[in-house]
């Protein structure tokens, strides 16, 4: 068709960053945590990651195929879900459990609600909660007996904190990851490196992680410990840092408005504090984020910014 040109309404330029590029950045940001997990827990970690990612991608692929929908696995979002779910698994988990979780995350939480961007809960976290409720024993077994990890037998630092013993692991152990826990949450250092990468590449902004962790720290200082060492211990253990940077910031399930992000993050901080201080279980990040996800539509509804020139926020 000589002489015919493309016509479209302006703008005619597009930024280089598409959905796939963003997901790739998230995957890159989780590489340090994945590397540490393999270093600490051995190839078993890698196996869990491969299984969850494999089942997540396969579920999405088959769903699209069977539902005659355009294929979306190439946007890498299923890979991200798979990795996040894997990093939330204890090292000795029988592999069929993460596999089941991955299928649940993709089919039930993501696709049944309309696919990417439409799910109202973080798929990986919802799957984790599903597994926690269904297989409480296996999901809370951090003994590492079978893979022979003597140094890390027994309870997680948070479980010990719950029973009053906060001094078996030092803050440095917590920071570097010389502790039992899920394969991805143990090393605060690795997670912070990844978080910094996400901030640097502007995949996420500082509001949710900083406000979440900040409010949590202040909350437990006031209502629980009155002691900075114990607050630091709480911040560095469990899934808080992983959750704050990688799960609470999930696009689909966090507010898009600036004010909303502050409110949501503060809400998560308070909930996590409540669960950890007064709840029955030692950890509360997953449930806090899932509950936070549910109020996002409400938060958004009341935090629509005022338009420019209509008495809204002053630009600077």
């Amino acid at each position: 068709m000589e002489g015919l040109r493309n016509i479209s309404s302006s703008p005619h330029f597009r930024s280089k960053t598409d959905t796939k590029a963003i997901m790739l950045d998230v995957i890159l940001a989780m590489l340090p945590a994945m590397a540490i997990s393999v270093y600490r827990f051995g190839l078993r970690s890698l196996l869990i990651i491969v299984v969850t990612v494999g089942f997540a991608v396969l579920s999405e692929y088959l769903w699209n195929l069977l539902m005659k929908k355009p294929q979306t696995v190439q946007d890498l979002s299923a890979v991200v879900t798979g990795i996040i779910l894997a990093l939330n698994m204890p090292p000795e988990i029988p592999l069929w459990i993460p596999a089941l979780g991955a299928v649940f995350a993709i089919i039930v939480v993501k696709q049944l609600y309309g696919g990417i961007g439409q799910n109202f809960m973080n798929p990986a976290l919802a799957a984790r909660c599903f597994l926690l409720i269904s297989f409480a024993g296996l999901m809370n077994d951090f003994s590492c007996a079978k893979i022979g990890f003597d140094a890390m037998t027994g309870a997680t630092p948070l479980a010990m904190a719950k029973s009053g013993d906060m001094f078996r692991y030092g803050l440095l152990d917590l920071f570097l990851g010389n502790i039992p826990g899920t394969i991805g949450e143990v090393s605060a250092l690795a997670l912070l490196v990844g978080g910094a990468y996400l901030l640097f590449t502007k995949v996420i902004n500082w509001r949710i992680p900083v406000v979440y962790i900040g409010v949590f720290a202040v909350f437990i200082y006031i209502f629980g410990y009155h002691d900075l060492y114990q607050v630091a211990y709480q911040v560095l253990s469990g899934g808080l840092i992983f959750g704050a940077f990688f799960m609470a910031t999930d696009y689909a399930t966090s507010p898009i408005t600036v004010k909303g992000q502050f409110i949501y993050a503060a809400f998560l901080g308070i909930l996590t504090g409540l669960f950890r201080l007064f709840g029955g279980a030692p950890e509360g990040v997953s449930y806090a984020i899932i509950l936070g996800n549910l109020v996002v539509p409400l938060i958004e509804k009341y935090t629509i910014p005022k338009a420019f020139g209509k008495g809204g926020r002053k630009a600077k």
């Binding site: 493309n6 479209s8 005619h12 330029f13 597009r14 598409d18 959905t19 963003i22 979306t72 946007d75 979002s77 696919g115 990417i116 961007g117 439409q118 902004n205 696009y251 689909a252 898009i256 408005t257 600036v258 629509i304 910014p305 005022k306 338009a307 420019f308 020139g309 809204g312 926020r313």
Partner: peptide, 30 residues
């Protein structure tokens, strides 16, 4: 190259970038 036709539309992932860039402080995705 036509950057428009070579970048087909996919689903909104609610990343909020449109909200960040809007000089009129609107919420384009809504």
């Amino acid at each position: 190259y036509d950057e428009v036709s070579e970048n087909p539309t996919t689903a909104c992932i609610r990343c909020g970038r449109c909200v960040e860039v809007c000089p009129e402080f609107l919420v384009p995705t809504l």
